[in-house]
Design a protein around this nucleic acid. Structure first.
Lengths: 146, 146
DNA sequence: TGACACACGTTATAGCATAACGCAATTGAT
DNA sequence: ATCAATTGCGTTATGCTATAACGTGTGTCA
């Protein structure tokens, strides 16, 4: 009873723990730390951080969740449709950038092809082989800056 | 005997602890965590993490050191000349990007005006007020990828 | 049916960062 | 001169983030 359960919907089938973690992130309106997720899931039988981290690892691998490095926290991917952001099947739309409001916590996810292109060009020129690129802008969102 | 000591050279005078921490980072050829720095400075009287973090806070403020968010580690700024990277006096050359080799640990610091421009344009369009931007590319440097 | 892969659960530990206290030294206004 | 404000320092304790190492159960497939 531990294997992934196939669903009628999108990409890879999630296990119970993976679904629970994803649902928590998907309902949240701000990034959550692994330990905050853990606390939200105590009622569902979660007892230890590893249960969360293991689910997060898979969700990251599937491209359904992003890690915000500057926050040590996680968000559900903002483009649930179409297998999202690149890692999943090799396609997707390149590196994703995040704008993080330090007041309300809201995160906007966006992509800029030209930025990708410039960073890629630098890498090529330097013979650097990129594996993962992080772009995070911290500041104040329109609503909070007003 | 705790105040900054003026030096004939560059920007803001550093206190003893700040100098010690900066020197360790400056001599390192890879990013260092605060605790690694602490261990390196035990012989100089450092006993607690806060001594390191407090020095790092100031060095970050002066723009002499960068924090690598994806590593929870620190590097000396690669452009020691000309007050470096933006924070110090308000000028500098915008957001700095880092290419981090996951094999040898080497970090390259660079700047791309067009990337700045594109991210700035997105922010402007969305009414987002950027405070600090992080760009980190993890991968393999030319030497290690060969 | 046995080797394998994978998800899971648990305990323990490692690694990163800050809160809260009090003291010492410098600055600068009065 | 002297007092208040500021800043750096040292110490202890604590909190948050992440992984190591072990063992169990289950489904797959040769």
């Amino acid at each position: 009873m531990n294997a992934p359960v196939s669903t009628p919907t999108s990409a890879p089938a999630l296990t119970k723990n993976q679904s629970l973690v994803f649902d928590v992130l998907d309902r949240a309106d701000a990034p959550m730390s692994a330990y905050t997720i853990l606390d939200r899931l105590r009622d569902h039988g979660f007892r230890a951080p590893l249960q969360v981290y293991r689910a997060l690892d898979k969700l990251l691998e599937f491209g359904m969740v992003h890690r915000l490095e500057s926050l040590n926290a996680f968000v559900a991917c903002a483009h649930p449709e179409s297998e999202c952001c690149g890692k999943g099947h090799g396609h997707g739309h390149g590196t994703v950038a995040f704008a993080i409001c330090e007041s309300c916590g809201h995160v906007s996810e966006f992509h800029d092809h030209e930025v990708d292109h410039r960073l890629g060009a630098w890498a090529k020129a330097k013979n650097f082989k990129p594996a993962k690129t992080t772009i995070e802008i911290r500041g104040l969102c329109g609503a909070c800056a007003a």
